[in-house]
Design a protein around this nucleic acid. Structure first.
Length: 378
DNA sequence: TCTGGGGTCCTTCCGCCA
DNA sequence: TCTGTGGCGGAAGGACCC
């Protein structure tokens, strides 16, 4: 039975992909490095055993930055930025391709390191997790004059163990709930530890931009700004009814709760996947008529990849969908639910073909995707 | 020089059916 | 039989996140 305070940690690996690359290529430490783009731009091993890295200067294509080192961020580049734009800002930055297999390997390693100290973990993707520390021995103890010394020491032990097992640093926020911990882990990044309680909300949370709240994205932030709400504190000052009026019953009430730091979501240690998908942005836009053969090949390849993903994980899908992005960046989707779940490439291809017939294909396409959902165990 | 890829969840609409 | 209502699955789009 739970006794004492609820303590939830949010752990976020520091510039994860870039830090993994620096483990491999320590000679790049301190340099501006960006990760992104295609499989080209592999470092080249020279005769004298040194490596030659691609620089951003020569980049041409439609890729974006996946992660950048802190040195690169200082030059004004950041994740999500187009590589062409980044090459103007930081032409001498090193460009490395993404290596998801390696990131997944270190992701498993850091999660195992955490589990050695605290086993109740919620996966939130490759580089972050929530950890329920409430029941971990020592979490409720005071240490000297520090009433929260026990949980602080525990979080530090987790950070030490992650560094020991992976060579990577992380930032941790520890608070009474997931919402506050997610915010707190960013307050002292990189390599930081922040412990907060409800008493700290007015001084540490309310001054922050509303956008810092997980769940307030660019659209909601713009709308809030138009209402004169810039910070979390501004949001907390608004009556619940006013927020519901502006944002609807569900989201409005949620905004009111989060502004006051309230969140009772549990740490969820297991969840089944909902969908799996593959998509690709073309090197150049393709037209349904002029590039019919090329598009057909790409669609078949995506279906094959989705089928292999399903088979590898032992899943079958009852709903198959496609996603198309036109030259003007407008996106449409079409779904088809089948009488029986499938995992075969040809079945998926047939369903995707049916979906495609329901789209007006007069404009050129920049992206094509295939999605499998309504998953069941095969 | 336009803007990746892989996800989750929510809302709305629609047709079907009890 | 007509009308209304409410649940539900499926489809589409959108916001958001890493």
């Amino acid at each position: 039975m739970s006794r004492g305070r609820r303590w939830i940690a949010h752990l976020d690996m520091d510039a994860f992909y870039a830090s993994v690359e620096l483990l491999r290529y320590p000679e790049l430490k301190g340099q501006p490095v960006v990760i992104g783009g295609g499989r080209r731009h592999q470092p080249e091993l020279l005769a004298d055993d040194t490596r030659r890295f691609a620089s951003l200067r020569a980049y041409a294509g439609r890729g974006v930055i996946t992660t950048a080192t802190y040195a690169a961020r200082d030059l004004g580049v950041h994740s999500g930025m187009g590589l062409m734009k980044a090459s103007k800002l930081a032409p001498d930055a090193v460009l490395l391709p993404v290596d998801f297999d390696e990131y997944r390997r270190l992701s498993r390693a850091f999660k195992a390191a955490v589990a050695e100290v605290a086993p109740v973990i919620e996966d939130r993707g490759i580089d972050e997790i929530y950890i329920d520390l409430t029941e971990v021995p020592g979490a409720q103890d005071a240490v000297g004059h520090d009433p929260f010394g026990g949980v602080r020491a525990l979080a530090q032990e987790i950070r030490n163990n992650v560094l020991r097992r992976t060579g990577l640093t992380c930032s941790v926020g520890v608070t009474p709930n997931k919402l506050l911990s997610k915010i707190a882990s960013e307050l002292d990044k990189p390599d930081g530890l922040t412990v907060l309680t409800e008493a700290d909300i007015p001084t540490r949370i309310w001054p922050l931009a509303a956008r810092k709240v997980n769940g307030i994205g660019p659209k909601a932030a713009d709308k809030l700004l138009a209402l004169g709400v810039r910070t979390v504190g501004d949001l907390a000052a608004r009556p619940r009814a006013e927020l519901i009026e502006a944002f609807g019953r569900s989201y409005g009430a949620w905004l009111h709760e989060v502004a006051h730091g309230r969140d009772d979501r549990p740490v969820v240690t297991h969840s089944d996947p909902v969908s799996t998908s593959r998509e690709t942005t073309f090197e150049r836009n393709l037209h349904a008529v002029r590039d019919r053969a090329a598009l057909g090949e790409i669609l078949t390849r995506l279906c094959t990849q989705v089928a292999l993903d399903l088979q590898r994980k032992g899943w079958r899908a009852r709903t198959i969908g496609i996603k198309l992005r036109f030259e003007d960046f407008k996106t449409v989707t079409r779904d088809l639910t089948l009488p029986e779940p499938v995992a075969d490439g040809a079945d998926i291809r047939r369903a995707a073909g049916e979906c495609l017939k329901r789209v007006d294909l007069t404009r050129s396409l920049r992206l094509l995707g295939v999605r499998a959902s309504s998953l069941t165990r095969g």
